[in-house]
């Protein structure tokens, strides 16, 4: 396969990187950040890929934070995660993603008590899970001390 003589790509590697960077960022923004479909792509296929990425992301989050599907129930976990992940690209690791997802559900629950964490008992378990992992230090041992600590956190 002979490279077309008109292309100076060999000498223009930084240009090639720039063009590729724009193209890849455009495609990935569509797949994970809710950007419009770039010209020339099949919108239906991108939707299949977008769903597949969210499904895989949910799989890994369920592995690093198995308590979340336990607290929410598998079906609610899946649908709530898909709603959270749509248009919210993953920027750090999966553990941070799991924390952000739980935080998002708690905020959603606080705002008019809606969503998957609206139920009081679910909300309490989720909040405890989130607090145990998001703070600068582990929660104190013992039920009373822990409860006092959480009260102080508000």
């Amino acid at each position: 396969m002979a490279e077309p003589s008109g292309t100076d790509a060999a000498r223009d590697l930084s240009g090639a990187r720039e063009r590729l960077s724009r193209a890849q960022a455009g495609l990935l923004a569509t797949l994970v950040a809710g950007a419009p479909v770039p010209p020339g792509f099949d919108a239906d296929r991108l939707e299949v890929q977008r769903r597949a990425l969210i499904g895989k992301r949910a799989d890994v989050v369920a592995k690093v934070a198995p308590e979340l599907p336990q607290i929410l129930g598998e079906t609610v976990f899946r649908s709530a995660f898909a709603a959270y992940a749509r248009g919210r690209p993953m920027t750090g690791g999966y553990r941070l993603d799991a924390l952000n997802f739980a935080g998002h559900l708690l905020e959603q629950g606080a705002d008019g008590r809606k969503g998957p964490a609206a139920d009081r008992s679910t909300r309490r378990k989720l909040r405890l899970w989130w607090l145990e992992r998001s703070g600068p230090e582990p929660l104190p041992q013992g039920r009373i001390r822990r409860r006092l600590h959480l009260l102080r956190l508000g």
């Binding site: 990935l28 690209p89 920027t91």
Partner: peptide, 17 residues
């Protein structure tokens, strides 16, 4: 992909594209 040069935030695909 993404980052300052592309005008989009940095994004992880979490998969091979």
């Amino acid at each position: 992909a993404g980052g300052p040069q592309t005008g989009t935030p940095r994004m992880e695909a979490g998969h091979l594209l």
